[in-house]
């Protein structure tokens, strides 16, 4: 089943790449062929929001005593890590697209800045997950941190409407601008969003399995260390 999931993801990514690189037209107002970065930049940003949303939801479920389970904590961590990878890519791809269209690699624009803050907030979250002596302690700290960090997601998303920014406003879900993208561009953008969502799902699945293994290993090492300590204490107090 997992292999089928991987195969579907790879095929959909391949089809998207063919359309993005060879079928869709260049646009003079978007840096000519640099517009092809749209099919990576927009989906990676969407995945970043989705990933941090899943982390926030899983953290909430962990915080409620009735739904508390180690699964939610591990899922939150796995989704956040994948989200950080996609946020990093969003920033790099945006910079690469910004240079030919805006003439600059970086601007302290509201969208760019809030996205960079998002990246560092979740890097901090991942660092925080490595602290704490017990799984419960780690779960509590990281769940609260995940909910605080998530506050930046709507700020980042709405920054283009709240402030005047260099970054363009939403194209697909923006009635006021009524910008329409049709034909091969619309199809490729939808295909890219679907295939990147599949990729996100697959990566989270793999990372979650790895997190379960790491958790098992840590628990076993702790048990072994306690057993060794108890044994050493017995040797110390034992009469010679």
């Amino acid at each position: 089943m997992k292999r089928l999931f991987l195969a579907t993801t790879v095929v959909s990514l391949g089809v998207t790449a063919v359309f993005a690189l060879w079928v869709t037209p260049p646009r003079a107002d978007q840096g000519f062929d640099a517009v092809r970065l749209l099919y990576l930049h927009a989906p990676t940003a969407w995945i970043a929001y989705l990933a941090f949303g899943v982390t926030a939801l899983a953290s909430l479920l962990w915080l409620f005593p009735r739904t508390r389970s180690a699964t939610w904590d591990l899922l939150a961590g796995a989704s956040a890590e994948v989200g950080v990878v996609f946020t990093g890519l969003t920033l790099v791809l945006g910079s690469l697209w910004g240079r030919p269209t805006w003439g600059t690699w970086w601007e302290w624009d509201a969208r760019l800045t809030t996205t960079a803050i998002l990246f560092f907030l979740y890097l901090g979250y991942l660092a925080l997950r490595r602290t704490g002596t017990t799984a419960d302690e780690r779960g509590k700290r990281s769940a609260i941190a995940a909910l605080i960090a998530f506050a930046d997601v709507p700020v980042s998303y709405l920054s283009v409407t709240w402030w005047q920014t260099l970054h363009q406003q939403g194209t697909v879900f923006n009635e006021r601008l009524s910008v329409k993208i049709d034909g091969s561009m619309a199809f490729t953008l939808v295909a890219a969003v679907v295939s990147f969502t599949l990729l996100y799902g697959y990566l989270v699945l793999e990372r979650f399995e790895l997190a379960q293994l790491e958790e098992g290993r840590e628990a076993r090492e702790l048990e072994r260390a306690i057993a060794e300590r108890v044994r050493a204490e017995h040797v110390e107090v034992a009469p010679v």
Partner: peptide, 21 residues
Amino acid sequence: HNWGFVTAGYSITTAALGGYF
């Protein structure tokens, strides 16, 4: 036509996601 930026973007994305996987 800015193909250099496109190539860099697609290469970096493939390397980052492939490497992570």
